[in-house]
């Protein structure tokens, strides 16, 4: 049978709605008159029904009793393979098992946040970046106090050196998110919200991260060098060798810092065949 969800008010209910309407109108003229009218109606009309409409508009103020649901008793399933022989449980052992159960120490509670505005990105694998954030700093609190209207929170995922980005709508209270990305690329992630006027406000920017390569490199050039400690031992005579490709190279390492990078550069000198 199809159940109707339409709300059908009873006659008394309609009557009482009218009574209340009249009372409200009367109260505009004279509150005392309205009160008299209402008490008269209460005496002579059939009593008002309180009907559960099946829709909970507001949270109940009184705590409802918690129903304890007991799971249906499991029927013992006959094991397909015989279990290892369980030695008979001694009284002492039973006591021990019961006592050993409840206490699990998970350590002291840590602060919920450290009062910062920050977002940090960490690489999980070539296709996934994890970000966590906190917006408890002075700056973001000020911005949030200023913008009272609706906010559409999102993460903006920027590629290094490109203007392009894409947005990922988020729930800002989640405080962390896993983002799906492309391998072998650099990313910076901005956290912010769009106001109802379409303006995007960045509250925090992440550290740059580089996702790993998920396959082999496209570069084939060969550079050769010496293990740094063996380098000095090997070079005084000016070592030359034939690379497996058949060309002569003289190679060496020299230490030169590339600005902003800890990686040292290598140089190769081609000597011809």
């Amino acid at each position: 049978m199809k159940k109707s969800y339409q709300y059908n008010p009873s006659l008394t209910e309609i009557l009482w709605t009218i009574v209340k309407l009249i009372r409200d109108l009367l109260s505009l003229l004279s509150p005392r008159l309205a009160e008299r009218f209402y008490s008269f109606c209460s005496k002579h009309l059939p009593k008002e029904e309180t009907k559960d409409r099946g829709v909970l508009r507001y949270a109940p103020t009184v705590k409802e009793e918690v129903k304890i649901i007991t799971p249906p008793e499991e029927k013992p399933v006959k094991p397909s393979v015989s279990a290892p022989p369980v030695p008979p449980l001694k009284r002492e052992e039973l006591r021990v098992r019961i006592e050993a159960q409840p206490y699990i120490d998970r350590g002291p509670l840590l602060p919920e946040h450290y009062g910062d505005d920050r977002i940090v990105a960490l690489v999980r694998d070539p296709h996934c970046i994890f970000v966590y954030w906190d917006l408890k700093g002075f700056k973001s609190q000020e911005i949030l106090n200023y913008h009272k209207g609706p906010k559409y929170w999102s993460l903006r995922v920027h590629h290094f050196g490109e203007d392009a980005y894409y947005g990922v709508p988020i729930n800002v209270d989640a405080r962390n998110w896993y983002l799906w990305v492309t391998d072998d690329k650099g990313y910076i992630i901005d956290l912010g919200f769009s106001t109802q006027h379409g303006e995007f406000l960045t509250l925090a920017s992440s550290n740059p991260v580089q996702t790993p390569r998920a396959g082999t490199s496209r570069e084939y050039a060969e550079y050769w060098g010496f293990v740094f400690r063996e380098f000095k031992k090997a070079t005084p005579e000016g070592v030359t060798w034939v690379s497996p490709g058949g060309r002569w190279y003289e190679g060496w390492l020299f230490e030169a810092h590339v600005p902003g990078s800890p990686i040292l550069q290598t140089q190769r000198k081609e000597q011809g065949k």
Binding site: V123, D125, V227, T266
Partner: peptide
């Protein structure tokens, strides 16, 4: 002491090879 110069790729020996 001579070896090819290659920048290794980010990796671990854990399950699935990354972090």
């Amino acid at each position: 002491p001579k070896a090819q110069i290659v920048t290794p790729s980010q990796s671990t020996w854990g399950d699935k090879g990354y972090n």
